[in-house]
Amino acid sequence: MQYEIIIAGFGGQGVLSAGRLLVYAGMLEGKHVSWLPSYGPEMRGGTANCHVIISDEEVGSPILNFADIAICMNLPSFDKFESFVRDDGFILCDTSMVSIEKTKETSKKVYGIDATTKAFELGNKAFANIFIIGKLLKITKMLKPESIEKALYDVLPEKKHHLIPIEMEALKVGLAD
């Protein structure tokens, strides 16, 4: 099994770190992984995306021309990457940022979670990507939630470890959504 995922949104929405978290957790489960960010002169506020591959086999190209899953955390990302998704794939939107009306424009399967609103309710908009990951795991079962937790401990600096229980709450909300 191979998952090819594009995650896209505004810089600062945790797009790149969501991808890193997924590939890290994938690596912990012994899968082959790659993560390739878009890189450019914009440090903040610009558009950002990353190509993520989580596979049972060796990864060929880390560059995706098509994806099984596009995670769109804002409207421009939906417009840009909707066409990248294979017919049997799906789009996962942050419906705080992409309206339900908008998602009806595509013939492809669309899932949504009100991630940014929920993150604000939890007190930190930076958690939006964790709600999204929770929802992704619910749909695909591609990784175990425990692997995400372990990945968080490995990836985040120690001074942020106190936030992990809150992030796991967010993950659970996504898993139950």
């Binding site: 992984v33 790659s34 993560w35 390739l36 960010p37 890189y39 990864v59 560059i63």
Partner: peptide, 10 residues
């Protein structure tokens, strides 16, 4: 090249 420098793998 740029993509190899930027990409993450195990």
């Amino acid at each position: 090249d740029g993509s190899m420098g930027q990409m993450m793998e195990a």
